[in-house]
Amino acid sequence: MVKEYIVIAFTENQIGVLNRITALYLRRKINIESLKVSESSIKGISMFVISAFTSSETIDKLVKQLRNIIDVIQVEYYTNEELITQEIALYKISTKLFRQNGATDRIVREWNARIIEINPSFVVVEKTGTREEIEQMRQEFERQQLLQEFTRSGTVVLHREPWVQALPNQIISQ
């Protein structure tokens, strides 16, 4: 059965690791839905969060092959339920429409979003939440024909279990 799997990889911060990782998805013709790379809590170690739709059998084999990349330190995969996932999104709306339309204030309040910039030509609303929440708020703005531009980050994740250690101790202590 095809479902969304989120791969979390810790790697050396080296040129080429990103290519080697995405090449293994490409080889099996798996489209990456979302990809986030940033420095982990440890200097010199990058954290990848990659989400893609595939089968459990395929993701299992793919992750084993990801582990063979020399600069990859650790890779695991999860389903959405196993993780706390959040994305951030920015919505750009014309200042004129924002003022004229009575729904804007309500939408921002109801969705727990906030306004981070107002200038004479546009307003920028920021929302942090699950991908679904972000998408639903986008649809509301669109129904009101307010949205000028929209952008979304990749997923940031934390494990649900309190005891999960993201990286092996031997790496952390170095």
Binding site: I15, G16, N19, R20, A23, R27, I70
Partner: peptide, 14 residues
């Protein structure tokens, strides 16, 4: 060369 040999090498480096 690095990109071309990436999927067919165990490791590469420029």
């Amino acid at each position: 060369t690095i990109s071309m040999t990436m999927p067919i090498s165990k490791w590469n480096f420029q």
